[in-house]
């Protein structure tokens, strides 16, 4: 499992290195020139090309190493990140994070955090509904007040709740 993942990561990096190296002119703007002469000592593509070449070389070394130890035992993988149950947990965890990121701005900080915290508590194994609801409401509210009133940083304020707080406490 771990070796296949290693090879997949290295393979992806190799493909990226080759693609970037081949199409680098499409990804980097033309350097500024004055009377036909470049204004900088090195081209903007020079350093990226060196690093692409380095990656291709390193991937070659890596695959040679994999080929050499193909018969030997694998290193132990991180147990917490393997196994079907953990995959399901981690998958659910990332789905909740994605949902949180997508609703963070449209729903405002307090509402989106409430929804995300309820879902995360369930994913983490809590089944005490009252505790989940109270905790998921109190913590985002306290954090929102601390951030916006004490640290004076802005958080998304697009739901009725934030406007209500602003009306009560003054904007």
């Amino acid at each position: 499992m771990q070796r296949r993942l290693e090879v997949a990561v290295a393979g992806s990096l190799l493909v990226l290195a080759v693609t970037f190296a081949v199409f680098i002119d499409l990804m980097v703007a033309k350097p500024k020139t004055l009377f036909g002469r470049s204004l900088s000592a090195i081209e903007p593509t020079s350093f990226p090309l060196i690093s692409m070449g380095m990656m291709i070389l390193l991937c070659g070394l890596f695959f040679y190493g994999v080929y050499r130890r193909s018969g030997s035992a694998e290193e132990a993988a991180d147990e917490s990140l393997t196994g079907q149950t953990n995959w399901l947990n981690i998958g659910a965890f990332f789905l909740v994070l994605l949902l949180y990121a997508l609703i963070f701005y449209p729903l405002g900080f307090i509402t989106s955090s409430f929804i995300a915290m309820v879902l995360l508590s369930l994913v983490a194994g809590s089944r005490n509904i009252i505790q989940i609801v109270v905790f998921s409401f109190v913590l985002p509210l306290a954090f929102y007040l601390l951030a916006t009133r004490v640290l004076l940083v802005s958080l998304p304020e697009l739901s009725g709740l934030e406007f209500l707080i602003a009306k009560i406490l003054g904007s």
Partner: peptide
């Protein structure tokens, strides 16, 4: 319990 800590840590991470 982790079921209380994990949501709190995520809240801080996102904010």
């Amino acid at each position: 319990k982790n079921s209380m800590l994990i949501p709190a840590v995520i809240l801080f991470a996102f904010a």
